[in-house]
Structures are given as structure tokens and as C-alpha cells.
């Protein structure tokens, strides 16, 4: 009985949270138009969300690509199909690893920072103070950050994939002796612009949307104490990771399911 009671209570709590999150989302989206006329606000946030995530994405992409080159080579050489290494590296990066891994890194690097920042602004009454100055904190603080995250994500994912493909090329062609021309031409023939590249970008846009939303909402909804903010930050990373992986499955099924 106790189990069902707590289950019911949890369900109710989830619903109210989802409701608050939806209201928050609507406010956040409504604020976008007022942010667009002040690009300075977005630029500032793109700096803290995008530019500061650049390095981790770049290095991770390079290493993931190099590992893919190595592993792919060992498997493909068993079948004498080393020439398709480029296809394997590019397809796995562009379709899956690029959007997913960069979104996970983004949630850890930028998402947690956003949650902590907003949570602390709430704890130190900055949001409340802004409201009393007749400035809507959702429009002034939340919307620019959302837009910056949403726009940065596909750029970071593309960077991740591009760097990864080059990393795979360095290992595959430079160290393991796969033919350079075959690496690129096979990749060229097999990777479809619409099916692979565009779908990858769509994925990263969805992940950027969901991750930034979760991060900002958790910060805004945080209990305004040190412990509350730390919990909210943890929730951001955990919930973002779950959402990214779950949505990735759904999106993949929708995009590549008919093939």
C-alpha cells in the first residue's frame, strides 16, 4: 500500500512539474521575439554557452573519431573492407555520435552551468529583484540563454562530426594505411545529404532544445538554497541525458526506420 501511495504522490508531483515546465516553456518562447531585437544578449550567451564548450567538443570529437578509425579498421579488415572505413566513421558520427555525444557533453558543460547560474540568481533574489524593477526575468534572462543554447547545439554537433571524421582519417589513412581516396570517395557515395546530414542536424536541434529547456527550467524551479541548486544541477545532467538518449531512439526510429 505504501508503495502505491508513494507512486501516486510521485506521479502527481511529476505532472505538476511538467505543468510548470510547460508554462515556463511558453513564456520562454514568447520572449524570443523581444530578444531577437537585442542580439547583444544572445551573443553574450553564445559566448558562455557555445564558445566555452568549443574546446571540450573539439577534443572529444577528435578522440571519438580516432577511436572509431581504430576500431572500425580492426573489424573491417577482417572482411577485407578497409576501404569502407570512411563510410563507417562518417555514418556513425553524422547519424548518432555527433548529435548524441555532443549533446551529452553540452548538458554536462553548458547545461549544468546554466542551471547553477539561474538557481543562484534565484537564491540571491536577483530574479525577484528584476521582477520588482518591472523587468520580466524570463524575457531578459531565460530567453536569450535558450536561444543561444538552441542555436549553438547544431554548430557544436557539426563541429564534433567534422573533427571526428578528420580524426578517423588521421588514424585510418595516416597510421593504418587505408587509401586516402577510398576513404573520402566511399564516404561521399554512401552518406546522403538529406538522410544523414539533415537528419543529424534535426537531431541536434531537438537535443539543443530539450537540454537547454531542462537546464533553464531546473534552475528556475530550484529550491533557492545551496542544496537545492546542487540538486537541480544534478537533475539537469541526469534528466538531459535520459531525454537525449530516449529521444534519440525515437528520432532514429522515425528517420531511419523505413530503411
Amino acid at each position: 500500500m505504501e508503495f502505491f501511495r508513494s507512486l501516486g504522490a510521485n506521479t502527481r508531483e511529476s505532472f505538476t512539474k511538467l505543468g510548470r515546465g510547460s508554462y515556463f516553456l511558453i513564456g520562454m518562447l514568447a520572449g524570443i521575439s523581444s530578444v531577437l531585437v537585442r542580439p547583444n544578449l544572445i551573443l553574450k550567451q553564445m559566448h558562455s554557452v557555445g564558445v566555452l564548450s568549443f574546446l571540450i567538443i573539439f577534443i572529444s570529437g577528435l578522440f571519438v573519431g580516432m577511436v572509431l578509425g581504430l576500431q572500425g579498421f580492426y573489424i573491417l579488415s577482417r572482411f577485407g573492407a578497409e576501404e569502407t572505413l570512411g563510410v563507417m566513421v562518417a555514418a556513425s558520427l553524422v547519424r548518432e555520435l555527433g548529435p548524441v555525444v555532443s549533446a551529452l557533453l553540452f548538458a554536462g558543460r553548458a547545461g549544468s552551468a546554466l542551471t547553477a547560474e539561474i538557481g543562484l540568481m534565484k537564491a540571491t533574489e536577483q530574479l525577484s529583484g528584476m521582477e520588482m524593477m518591472a523587468i520580466d526575468p524570463i524575457k531578459r534572462i531565460i530567453s536569450p540563454r535558450f536561444l543561444a543554447g538552441f542555436l549553438s547545439m547544431p554548430l557544436l554537433a557539426a563541429l564534433f562530426s567534422a573533427v571526428g571524421i578528420m580524426g578517423g582519417q588521421i588514424v585510418g589513412c595516416g597510421l593504418l594505411g587505408v587509401d586516402d581516396g577510398a576513404y573520402w570517395s566511399q564516404m561521399n557515395a554512401a552518406i546522403d545529404f538529406q538522410k544523414d546530414i539533415i537528419n543529424g542536424v534535426i537531431k541536434s536541434l531537438v537535443f539543443g532544445f530539450i537540454t537547454t529547456w531542462i537546464a533553464l527550467f531546473e534552475g528556475y524551479d530550484a529550491v533557492p538554497t545551496a542544496e537545492g541548486v546542487s540538486r537541480a544541477t544534478t537533475r539537469t545532467v541526469v534528466n538531459s541525458a535520459f531525454s537525449i538518449l530516449g529521444l534519440d531512439f525515437i528520432l532514429t526510429a522515425l528517420m531511419f526506420g523505413d530503411n
Binding site: 562518417a90 547544431p154 562530426s161 573533427v163 571524421i165 561521399n188 552518406i191 544523414d196 546530414i197
Partner: peptide, 16 residues
């Protein structure tokens, strides 16, 4: 850099 990567993916990697 992001847009260059997108172009790279579109032109160099895919069959666009």
C-alpha cells in the same frame, strides 16, 4: 567554425 563544419559535412562528406 560551426558553419564551416556544416559545409564540410554537406560538401565533402555527403553526396550533395
Amino acid at each position: 567554425a560551426g558553419i564551416a563544419s556544416l559545409f564540410f559535412l554537406a560538401l565533402q562528406v555527403s553526396n550533395l
